[in-house]
Design a protein around this nucleic acid. Structure first.
Length: 423
RNA sequence: GCCGGGAUGGGGUAGUGGCCAUCCUGGGGGACUGUGGAUCCCCUGACCCGGGUUCAAUUCCCGGUCCCGGCCCCA
């Protein structure tokens, strides 16, 4: 019998979980500050929910199985279809809908650096607004999260527009758009000769010149060049210019136009974006874009949408490298040590707990020496010592473990004193 | 699914075709029943799995699993 942990799955103990929880809390507070509401969705869904959007090949990349009722089901590989289903059917929802979530999601792939089979993914979407303001708002949320996580200037937000790329490809002739996109998506990762061959096969006559264009990334000047060379891109260039200006207005500096960003998925429409490590060490930190046709696929009205997803794996690698991953340590604020007078110790512990402190209490019934040793080893910064003497006087002894000093205080003053000493 | 490198107590490691498999750390207990970190003592606990070669395999060979990394893919 094999009871070992499955490949690509992680276990988090309190120390590790505390760090991750803090990171998620930053994401959550940032999204809330942007007026996004938090949602949660089922972890198990019908496989058909994902077939609608992505086709049969997705089955091989999901944790799917037939349940006891004969239904084909799967652990969700992404959140968007469930959201689109709700938006399609809940016609009472006032638009624009702005939602975020931090679900666990599952993908049956080979684990490697920054990629696991089970991971958390922060997800934010706006449904019901086709305006460029919505694109800007979503991208700004992504950048603000990275900023608040201590990654300002450590990433680059690369932005493109699929419609613009399609316009360029149409000007080049009879091009196999999907194939060209796949090749473009590999720029910077795959062999350049191979990419050129793929581009030729896709029907692009002069891949050298073409790659020159899409390899250049930067600000408005890149858009000017594109517009001059491919006049039919003008409306999309205008839109991208607006987007870049809006992101300036949000106060960000990490955004650039980068035509090599196309995203692998067929359903994206219009603006697409990815945030990358500025040093180019890791795979994409996050990715997203516009998907204006998806809600309709689920039977709803034509509902424009834009959003992004950010997994915790690459983010963690990057934050660790930059030294901004939170300290991996969980400990209570206070340990209540009991020297007899167990009921009084319980009373003190509960008082502190209800005042908002993290309070661990002795459960061993061992001597004070052992209790102090335990608290010391756990790294708990304060110990409250209570026994018969303290109970009779209605006081408690507050011991600062780092300083090795202690004071006797009336019980009613204990919370305030503790609050003043904790960081 | 494919390719490369790994795998020795909970964590980190040394080492070996044969003898009680090394050390550090952690965990439990004690010296110490109202004051911790030090020290000392005791206890706990490992050669990834299966097959092969061999008198003998943790060690060599093959396969698998898992970990790390790369490819494919990346919703």
């Amino acid at each position: 019998m094999d009871i070992s942990r499955l490949k690509g799955f992680r276990e988090f103990l309190p120390d590790e979980m505390e760090a991750r929880r803090r990171v998620f809390e930053v994401m959550r507070q940032t999204a809330l500050s942007f007026g996004f509401g938090e949602v949660d969705m089922p972890s198990l869904e019908r496989l058909d929910l994902f077939r609608v959007k992505s086709g049969e090949e997705i089955v091989e990349q999901t944790f799917s199985f037939v349940d006891k009722g004969g239904r084909e089901v799967t652990l969700i590989p992404e959140l968007t279809p469930a959201l689109a289903r709700i938006v399609a059917h809940r016609k009472d929802l006032q638009k624009p809908v702005r939602w975020f979530s931090i679900p666990k999601i599952w993908r049956y792939e080979e684990p490697q650096s920054g990629r696991l089979r089970e991971f958390y993914q922060f997800n934010a979407d706006i449904f019901g607004s086709s305006s460029i303001y919505a694109d800007a708002e979503v991208i700004a949320l992504a950048m603000e999260i990275l900023h608040r996580l201590g990654l300002a200037g450590k990433f680059q937000m690369r932005i493109s527009d699929r419609y613009m790329m399609e316009a360029i490809l149409r000007e080049l002739g009879d091009v196999d758009v999907d194939r060209a996109f796949r090749a473009i998506d590999k720029i910077g990762r795959a062999d350049e000769g191979w990419i050129q061959n793929e581009l030729i096969s896709a029907g692009i006559p002069d891949p050298d010149e073409f790659m020159g264009f899409i390899s250049s990334h930067g600000g408005q000047d890149v858009l000017d060049d594109i517009e001059a060379a491919y006049p039919s891109t003008r409306p999309r260039c205008e839109r991208l210019r607006d987007l870049m200006s809006l992101l300036d207005a949000y106060g960000f500096r990490e955004h650039v136009v980068d035509l090599s960003i196309v995203r692998g998925l067929a359903y994206y429409t219009g603006v697409v974006f990815e945030a990358h490590d500025a040093k180019g060490e890791f795979r994409a930190i996050l990715g997203g874009g516009r998907y204006d046709t998806v809600v309709k696929l689920f039977g709803g009205e034509d509902t424009p949408a834009v959003g992004f997803g950010m997994g915790d794996a690459v983010l963690e690698l990057l934050m660790r490298r930059e030294g901004v991953w939170p300290e991996e340590r969980f400990s209570p604020d206070v340990f209540v040590a009991s020297a007899g007078a167990r009921e009084y110790a319980i009373e003190v512990a509960m008082k502190l707990r209800r005042e908002g402190f993290r309070v661990e209490m002795d459960l061993s019934g061992k001597g004070l020496s052992k209790q102090l040793r335990y608290a010391s080893r756990r790294g708990i910064p304060f110990v409250v010592i209570v026994g018969d003497r303290e109970m009779e006087k209605g006081v408690a002894v507050l011991r600062d473990m780092a300083a090795g000093t202690q004071v006797e205080v009336p019980l009613k003053d204990l919370p305030a004193l503790l609050r003043g000493r904790l960081p």
